[in-house]
């Protein structure tokens, strides 16, 4: 009989990180400002993971504004165990808002893809992402980076599940098309 020894893999480390974040959030809510400082260090990489692909060039604003909202509202977080889902929802919302603001004067809507041969098509992944709207990027992040199902992503974004499906389909198809053009 073969027995498998559970290995301490990525999931274990992620669980440890999350447990530490929850513990810091609890201490911060009790008024420990040093825990707040540690929680800030702890959350920055996670928030950046969410905000970066959505806000792109505006990610610095998105990260900071997300964290301001998080810390301002931390005392109202009744269930510290829900820290990451709560932070994720704020990060997506802020990243989309900041990205919309950033591109208001520069239409990047996806309905107008560049023509084949456009030199930008050979650019890196950021350039391709930049041609998606913030809402499409948010769907990609939630589904393909965070691994949420469509219903959960829809709830988080405040749109019907069908909208998430269609955005995801168009985002993926467009991404592939531009990437391979």
């Amino acid at each position: 009989m073969i027995t498998t020894v559970p290995k301490r893999g990525t999931e274990d480390r992620a669980a440890e990180r999350r447990a530490r974040g929850v513990a810091l959030a609890r201490a911060a809510r009790r008024g420990d400002t040093l825990a707040m400082s540690d929680l800030l260090d702890h959350l920055i990489p996670y928030v950046t993971t969410i905000c970066g692909p959505i806000a792109l060039d505006a990610r610095q604003d998105a990260v900071q504004e997300t964290l301001v909202v998080v810390f301002r509202a931390l005392r109202g977080l009744d269930e510290p165990e829900a820290l990451y889902g709560w932070v994720r929802a704020i990060a997506v919302r802020e990243a989309v808002r900041i990205a919309r603001r950033a591109v208001r004067d520069v239409p990047t809507e996806w309905a107008d893809p560049p023509a084949p041969g456009d030199p930008q098509l050979a650019a890196d992944i950021d350039d391709v992402l930049a041609r998606l709207s913030p809402e499409h990027r948010a769907v990609l992040v939630l589904r393909d980076v965070e691994g949420l199902d469509e219903q959960t992503a829809a709830d988080l974004l405040g749109v019907p599940e069908g909208t998430v499906k269609s955005r995801l389909h168009r985002a993926r198809a467009g991404f592939r098309r531009m990437w391979t053009a």
């Binding site: 990610r59 604003d61 504004e65 301001v68």
Partner: peptide, 10 residues
């Protein structure tokens, strides 16, 4: 007027 940092590739 907020600016920020990252450990990502951006």
């Amino acid at each position: 007027d907020l600016d920020t940092n990252a450990d990502t590739d951006l």
